[in-house]
Nucleic acid binder design. Structure first.
Lengths: 187, 187
DNA sequence: ACCTGAACACCGTTCAAGT
DNA sequence: ACCTGAACACCGTTCAAGT
């Protein structure tokens, strides 16, 4: 039993080191091979595979904490700002974050279909719905659209190149989307 | 000279056969390897590479005709419909086409940076600008946004999964974008 | 000129062998 | 239980050899 415990501790240490190393390596080269990550972490390829069977699951492991933060940011923003402003800030934060941290977009795409990812995906959809419903209740948007639709749009914007031009473009397109959400004046 | 001519004819035949085969193979498996395409076309890998140094350039070769059609469709639609309706129809056509024919999205991304692709990219930007300006002149949208921005948005929508759900989602998001473009009522 | 296809470096993935 | 790392099938790319 102590042996089992010891083994488990080893496994956990490995997992943590893989995550720490992968975060750094992928920050430098987003397309770094899983071989190179395993080597940099000082583990065999099989060990990396045991813990993270796909590249997406590795990225998910790296950014899970940040994603939780992002989700919990939604109610905080609603406390501090008017709903539409909160929604806008949250969306900007999301896209900014997603573009800087490579692989988040692919992870979101996987979340659409892969059962393992939905536990991370749903809270994000809920965050969007929370923000959008608040805007609707306050009368700041005409009618809320599907929360998944909007989250997917944010995920797509994340895929624009991380250049200055790409960043500016995603900001403008986000502006367009919000303009589309805003209440149309009934005349 | 006749020899040179004969050679050139061979090269052209090869090129055409590669394109015809690649079109079929990629329709069945969008991720088909270049090896398998070369083999299916009955040419060496080097020959495929000579004609199409990247996967994107191969996709571009396959769909260049269709892209030209799409570009020339813009003025035709403007003749037949009111500008906003024309713009909407063109956009739907674009997204529909891009999602069905895999690889078009990657090609468009390459077009953003790669010099070789810009000759195909610019006419599409021009088509978007033509449609959007017509809408603005007719007073159907408040003010035109950057044509490249909008084209990139269309390209992103193309990346949604080619399922019934993905198709419906891209339609709804396109609707959102157009709602954002439409003239805000000045009150 | 143009084509062929073996060869190269590399990728994700597996699995027998160790502890 | 968990880890290692050689091995496998495959990828895009190159290039000496042919015609």
């Amino acid at each position: 039993m102590t042996q089992t415990h010891k083994r488990r501790a080893d496994a956990r240490t490995n997992r943590d080191r893989i995550l720490a190393v992968a975060r750094d390596v992928l920050a430098i080269d987003p397309a770094a091979s899983l071989h190179s990550i395993a080597k940099a972490a000082g583990v065999g390829q099989g060990t990396l595979y045991r813990h993270f069977p796909t590249r997406e699951s590795l990225v998910l492991g790296i950014y899970r904490d940040s994603i939780d933060e992002l989700v919990s940011l939604a109610p905080s923003l609603l406390d501090a700002f008017k709903p539409l402003e909160a929604f806008r800030r949250w969306s900007e934060r999301f896209v900014d974050y997603g573009r800087k941290k490579h692989g988040v977009a692919d992870m979101l795409r996987a979340a659409m279909t892969d059962q393992d990812f939905r536990e991370t995906y749903w809270p994000m959809v809920d965050a969007v719905r929370l923000l959008m419903d608040a805007c609707a209740d306050a009368g700041e948007i005409s009618k809320p659209i599907d929360a998944e639709d909007f989250l997917q749009l944010l995920a797509l914007l994340t895929q624009l190149p991380p250049t200055a031009e790409g960043t500016a473009r995603s900001e403008r397109l986000l502006e367009l989307a919000f303009h589309g959400l805003e209440r149309s004046e009934d005349h």
